[in-house]
Amino acid sequence: MTVQFTIDGLEVKAKEGEHLLDVARRHGIDIPSLCHHEAVEPIGACRVCLVEVRSGQKTTITTSCNFLVEDGIEVHTDTAEVRKHRAMNLELLLARAPKSDVVRKLASASGVTRTRFEPLAYEPLPNCILCELCVRTCDMLGHHALTTVGRGDKKRIGLPFNKPSDNCVGCASCLSVCPTQCISVKDTPTQRAIWGQKHDFILCKVCGAPVITKKHRDFAISEKGLPEDYYDTCEKCKQSAASKRFASVVW
């Protein structure tokens, strides 16, 4: 079923069951957010993507990433209330992740350039904003290596018992989705160090560049039923081989 409503005065249509943030972005309306990624289910953690939703007599401030669109609502993305509360949540996040460029940029766009709060006393991962994108992605990819540990003011991201996990294949997807880039991944030409362990790379048979970690290859081949030699060459060399083949056929 289709629902119809307005965002900042603009008439929009969406499917029932869609989330407001996705609909807004599709219509070119930007709502800042940190913990949202289209590949995984929203959890509404960062509380930055705030909007004001008017429905009949009721006006509420809500996060847009996990708000299911409704027919006839009136959405405002930039009211004084929204700005005030977004600024406060960004100030809280700035205190947690003072070195994150993304957080600093968003905060300063909200007029927050310094925080009135003390630096956090604890944080096993400096600049982590606990958005759980890494955990959600790790789960979605079927690895289940990372987890959210503890709760409340002791919540953190990590591995069970803080020990290297057999499930981690070293794919570094966690880092690729991390908004503050706070996960430590160190690559050498032959090895990747991540989450307390080292993974050997498969090196491209043609150019010698790292293709994928061995463990990741084994996982991908067994899970996706890819041919054994799928990761023998890197994408670049695969492409140039393909174009050479193409060229030989055409010319």
């Binding site: 959890i43 509404g44 509380r47 949540n89 709060f117 606990l130 409340g152 003011d153 919540k155």
Partner: peptide, 21 residues
């Protein structure tokens, strides 16, 4: 409450921690 918060929302988790301070 800061101890009992599930820790999902910035406003509750960090907000209560700061309020406590």
């Amino acid at each position: 409450l800061k101890f009992e918060s599930c820790g999902n929302c910035t406003s509750c988790r960090d907000g209560l921690q700061r309020l406590y301070e």
